[in-house]
Simulated assay, not measured.
Amino acid sequence: MLDKNNGVISGNDCIVWMNNEVLDDIKGIEWKITLNFEDITYLNDHRTYKKYLGFSGEGTLTFNKTRSRGATLLKDAIKSGAMPDVKIVTKLMNKSTGKAERAVFTGVTFSEFGTSAEAKSVSEESLPFSFADIEFPELM
């Protein structure tokens, strides 16, 4: 029987790729899907119903600052208006169970980029993004 604590996932066992490149300087990733609904109401009915209209997805890649990730990716796009075609893939693994969750984000758009720096602190770079579609080739 598997120890209950060994079943808990750790971010240390996550790999992230952007356009097939392993992001070896990534510190964290977060993403979420928001389901979009419209309220539906009827005369003589005090309840409110919901009609599903689609979803939107967004997230943030956070890097330990080792290179100019955002500027390299977007420097030409901010002047030309031609945004790069980006695909992000994540794989979150549980080494104890051998199970993994893999997510593939396509239609990725970056909304901002920049760097933070302060005394006696490691510099970071954050790249907030949105995505148009997501697939789950593997689930735990």
Results as ranks from 00 to 15, higher is better:
67 R>V: 05
25 D>V: 01
137 P>H: 12
7 G>Y: 05
69 R>H: 10
105 F>Q: 02
110 F>W: 10
135 E>V: 11
33 I>A: 09
111 S>R: 04
42 Y>K: 10
125 E>Y: 01
46 H>G: 06
69 R>L: 05
91 K>T: 09
119 A>G: 14
113 F>Q: 01
45 D>F: 04
81 G>Q: 02
98 G>N: 14
126 S>A: 14
129 F>G: 00
29 I>C: 08
41 T>Y: 11
10 S>K: 12
113 F>A: 01
85 D>Q: 13
56 S>C: 15
23 L>P: 07
93 M>T: 11
25 D>E: 07
98 G>A: 07
59 G>Y: 00
76 D>L: 14
84 P>N: 04
102 R>W: 10
120 K>V: 10
69 R>A: 03
67 R>A: 04
41 T>H: 15
89 V>R: 14
125 E>A: 03
71 A>G: 07
111 S>E: 13
61 L>Q: 00
23 L>W: 01
131 F>A: 02
15 I>D: 09
24 D>R: 11
124 E>C: 14
79 K>W: 07
117 A>Y: 03
5 N>D: 07
13 D>P: 12
51 K>Y: 05
113 F>G: 01
138 E>R: 08
83 M>V: 04
68 S>I: 00
21 E>T: 15
129 F>L: 01
60 T>C: 04
105 F>E: 01
5 N>I: 13
71 A>N: 05
72 T>G: 03
61 L>C: 02
111 S>K: 10
118 E>G: 13
39 D>T: 09
106 T>N: 12
3 D>V: 12
105 F>H: 03
12 N>D: 03
128 P>Q: 04
135 E>K: 11
27 K>H: 13
80 S>F: 05
81 G>N: 04
74 L>T: 02
65 K>Y: 03
118 E>N: 14
127 L>P: 00
46 H>C: 05
33 I>D: 13
38 E>Q: 15
79 K>D: 12
51 K>C: 14
17 W>L: 07
113 F>D: 00
115 T>P: 01
122 V>F: 08
24 D>C: 15
110 F>G: 01
95 K>F: 15
67 R>Y: 11
82 A>N: 10
81 G>F: 03
83 M>A: 14
94 N>K: 06
85 D>C: 13
93 M>I: 15
132 A>T: 04
61 L>W: 01
28 G>H: 05
123 S>T: 13
76 D>V: 08
9 I>W: 08
140 M>Q: 07
119 A>M: 10
81 G>K: 02
11 G>H: 15
90 T>Q: 02
37 F>N: 08
77 A>T: 02
26 I>T: 05
115 T>H: 04
60 T>Y: 09
69 R>W: 04
82 A>R: 08
95 K>G: 05
117 A>E: 03
89 V>C: 10
131 F>W: 07
109 T>I: 13
28 G>V: 02
118 E>H: 07
95 K>W: 15
22 V>C: 05
118 E>A: 14
11 G>N: 14
40 I>R: 08
27 K>R: 06
130 S>T: 09
37 F>M: 12
39 D>Y: 14
16 V>A: 04
58 E>A: 06
9 I>E: 06
125 E>N: 02
82 A>E: 13
65 K>W: 07
10 S>F: 15
139 L>W: 10
57 G>M: 15
109 T>Q: 07
4 K>W: 10
1 M>H: 15
7 G>A: 07
137 P>S: 15
117 A>S: 13
35 L>M: 10
50 K>P: 08
36 N>R: 08
73 L>K: 01
103 A>H: 09
